[in-house]
Design a protein around this nucleic acid. Structure first.
Lengths: 83, 83
DNA sequence: CAAAAATATACCCGTAACGACATAATGTCA
DNA sequence: TGACATTATGTCGTTACGGGTATATTTTTG
């Protein structure tokens, strides 16, 4: 359900989903672009200190590109809490 | 002409375009989210070491969100070349 | 269930981001 | 042209990334 990407956390979730969708492991993806497995792990977990450098290498590994767009509706949040 | 965003450089270009489009200065944008003007400058100039942290604060300042998508065609550039 | 694979953490180290502040280099406009 | 605004660049101190390596924890699969 395509999460809105507005934070390192949501970005990490989206990246993980894409990786899984391609059936690859963190190790495989990382090594394909010279990154350590633990770095991929941190990115997917939403590490806010991740560098663009790393982000774009990961995107390359997954054959993805980025886009920016106007923020959409606040869209009532999600992560499992059923208020 | 929406550049494909696949590197810190192209991301920086896109962000600068958006900021200009909104008629804001680096200082104004930065201060609105607690960032230094020189940090905005570096981001727009394509600093690969920029942290996601900073990126998302800037996106928030500009009221933008991110999206990931499959890489598009190598994209033979531009002006109507019908090849 | 056990064994194997995948992911999350941890530590050390070299490097660099960012805030804070300052200044130089450009750009804009009357 | 000069005054002002904007953007680029610099230093210092604090903090943390990411590579490298190792290990713990979780998930998958037979």
């Amino acid at each position: 359900m395509i999460p809105k990407i507005t934070s390192p956390e949501t970005l990490g979730q989206a990246l993980r989903a894409e990786r899984k969708h391609k059936g690859m492991s963190q190790k495989a993806v990382g090594h394909s672009v010279g990154m350590e497995q633990h770095t991929i792990s941190k990115i997917e977990k939403g590490n806010p200190g991740t560098e663009l450098n790393s982000l774009f290498r990961l995107l390359a590994a997954l054959d993805l590109e980025l886009n920016i767009q106007p923020r959409q509706k606040p869209a009532m949040e999600s992560t499992g809490d059923n208020w």
